[in-house]
């Protein structure tokens, strides 16, 4: 038991936490960007599946991982436009559209898999490409820190850059203010001349691209093939993290980090004699605890008003 405790404090463990945390952070950023603009995106999981599948497919037919990545962004934009069309043009309930897209993506991806590969399990028969891992010069030679932050997948660094970008966008730019205004009260926003639909459209497109990249991370780096339903509820975990954050981006990121640690701990404990069912629920217990914490906080806020 003591050496397990030691292993949690090692540089290798933090490396693993980053590795398992990136898809979760993509998912929670995706949920965050859409929700602060007032269109909750619960299709994160479905878009991730499509991102994962199309990245593999495009990289296989073009022979280039980078063109595959372009395909991932494209499919994200297409999914966003579908969502925007139904929610903004047809005034459909965004939750219903989200559910529909999730169900659609789960089954349609298997159908496409069947069409392209003749199998329902994996894209193992497609000669797909993966995005490279990146060794950061200089930093990789620093002990401990180099071990933790160098040598990750390309999309890991993109993820961090996007997180910084979102923070600046939302908190430091006029556009970010407009996004929040649309989320808080669209009529008030409209009355001061903000084009609500335009702001929301941009937010949804951004959100869907984030989710698609999260999927591509799984199938074009972490794994080198797509395997049906490989997102395994990571999109939902992201949505939960966003709910805990309640509009505060730093709390969203912090919550995601907690979930990532929980997942890293689960993977480490899987090797011990502890019952696997018990170990596997750790991240979900974290989600529950976070939700309870959130509602207590809200109740206190209500009381103090």
């Amino acid at each position: 038991m003591a050496n397990i405790m030691d292993s949690f404090l090692s540089a290798g463990f933090l490396f693993i936490v980053i590795r398992v945390g990136v898809p979760l952070l993509y998912a929670s950023m995706s949920a965050y960007v859409a929700s602060i603009a007032g269109i909750p995106n619960i299709a994160v999981e479905g878009i991730m599946i499509f991102g994962a599948l199309f990245g593999v497919y495009f990289s296989a037919i073009t022979g280039s991982a980078w063109l595959g990545l372009l395909g991932v962004i494209m499919i994200g934009v297409i999914m966003a436009l579908v969502m925007a069309f139904f929610t903004m043009k047809m005034n459909a309930n965004p939750i219903m559209i989200g559910i529909a897209l999730n169900l659609f993506a789960t089954d349609f991806s298997v159908w496409l898999l069947m069409l392209w590969t003749g199998t329902k399990g994996t894209t193992a028969t497609l000669p797909s490409k993966v995005l490279p891992t990146v060794d950061i010069p200089v930093i990789k030679d620093i002990p401990v820190i180099g071990e933790i932050i160098s040598g990750h997948y390309f999309l890991t660094y993109v993820c961090v850059a996007l997180a910084v970008f979102i923070y600046v966008l939302v908190y430091k730019t006029p556009f970010g203010l407009r996004m929040k205004a649309c989320g808080l009260d669209e009529h008030a926003a409209e009355s001061v001349g903000i084009k609500v639909n335009k702001v929301r459209l941009i937010a949804i497109i951004f959100s869907a691209i984030l989710a698609a990249l999260g999927g591509a991370y799984l199938s074009m780096g972490y794994m080198s093939i797509f395997s049906s339903n490989m997102t395994a509820s990571r999109g939902w975990t992201g949505i939960a993290a966003n709910a805990v954050g309640g509009g505060n981006f730093l709390i969203v990121v912090l919550t995601t980090v907690v979930f990532s640690f929980a997942q890293g701990i689960v993977n480490r404990l899987a090797l011990t004699a502890l019952p696997s069912e018990l170990v596997n629920i750790i991240p979900y217990v974290c989600v529950m605890l976070a939700m309870i914490f959130l509602s207590i906080k809200n109740m206190q806020k209500e009381k103090s008003k």
């Binding site: 290798g12 693993i16 590795r19 398992v20 898809p23 799984l218 972490y222 794994m223 395997s227 049906s228 339903n229 490989m230 395994a232 993977n267 480490r268 899987a270 090797l271 696997s276 069912e277 596997n280």
Partner: peptide, 25 residues
């Protein structure tokens, strides 16, 4: 022998993590 349970038949990412832990061990 080390045995781990993924908890799912469609989560290769977790299976990969567990395998890496085994190889480290």
């Amino acid at each position: 022998v080390i045995i781990t349970y993924v908890g799912s038949y469609t989560d290769p990412a977790t299976a990969k993590e567990q395998t890496q832990q085994m190889l480290t061990a």
